[in-house]
């Protein structure tokens, strides 16, 4: 296969980027999309040009490192991660435009690599159950209906790749945040902190500069792990209920 690539090149966050066009003449349909980029990079290095930087790691669709906005869609034409996309999804002679995720909260580091630390900071703001190691009850002391466990698992399947933000016209992170909020709101283990959790995670999400949700459903349509919009509705419920009912108690400290 012959492929024409139009790739966003940007030295670093301080300099302006632009598209560069490359030609690849011997692309095998069995190559993964990232392997095609490996081949391109090998060619570039042989010609003395610097390789195209892109994020990737596990290359089996689970780590969430790979990104790439391919021909106007996050992770390309199929509902998988970029690393699971294969060149047989394209035609001989195709032109492919590759851009980084574009969002204010995901600044470009270099070429196609963006900084998704905002996602980590949102998780740090409350995406956990406050239990220390040790001293926890037996796993079977907390019975959880199968349906609830399955639904929590559906939400927990999020890989944190950021395709939802990339796909959303508002660069909203609602699907990502709501997946974690949902997982822990559904499970009994998450219930004690559910109000504070959703309030803190939403506040962090807003302060990172993500947009608001306008229920377009683009995130769900592009999510490689099929995370559902139901989670966003659940987070809305959780958030409004928390806003209306939560209050703070100032601890007096002391004791003995």
């Amino acid at each position: 296969m012959k492929i024409t690539l139009k790739i966003w090149r940007q030295k670093n966050n301080a300099t302006k980027g632009s598209f560069k066009t490359y030609q690849l003449d011997h692309v095998s349909p069995d190559m993964s999309f990232l392997e095609m980029l490996d081949v391109l990079n090998g060619d570039l290095i042989s010609k003395g040009e610097e390789s195209v930087a892109f994020d990737h790691d596990c290359r089996e669709g689970i780590c969430g490192a790979c990104s790439l906005y391919i021909n106007g869609r996050p992770h390309g034409p199929q509902q998988t991660t970029t690393c699971q996309l294969h060149m047989r999804s394209f035609q001989d002679g195709d032109s492919i435009v590759i851009e980084p995720w574009r969002a204010k909260a995901f600044p470009v580091i270099r070429d196609l690599v963006v900084d998704r630390a905002a996602f980590d900071r949102i998780q740090q703001s409350g995406g956990y159950v406050s239990v220390n190691t040790g001293g926890v009850p037996d796993g079977n002391e907390i019975p959880i209906p199968k349906k609830v466990a399955d639904e929590a698992m559906d939400a927990a399947a999020c890989i944190g790749c950021g395709a939802c933000v990339a796909a959303c016209k508002n660069a909203s992170a609602m699907l990502f945040v709501s997946a974690k909020v949902s997982q822990l709101a559904l499970l009994p283990q998450g219930k004690p902190e559910r109000k504070e959790r959703v309030e803190r995670m939403v506040a962090q999400m807003d302060s990172e500069g993500f947009g608001a949700c306008t229920n377009t459903g683009a995130c769900e349509a592009e999510c490689p792990k099929g995370i559902s919009l139901t989670n966003i509705a659940r987070m809305n419920r959780e958030y409004f209920a928390a806003s209306l009912s939560s209050y703070e108690i100032v601890s007096k400290g002391g004791g003995d």
Binding site: R73, N170, G211, T214, E222
Partner: peptide, 29 residues
């Protein structure tokens, strides 16, 4: 207010190519 925030959230650089996977109405409210 929301539109302004949402527009800003995309960042300065916009996508050169964008194919939409959401209904037309939802994007043009």
């Amino acid at each position: 207010l929301l539109t302004r925030k949402n527009y800003a959230a995309r960042g300065v650089e916009r996508y050169a190519v964008s194919k939409n996977s959401s209904p037309w109405t939802s994007r043009n409210m």
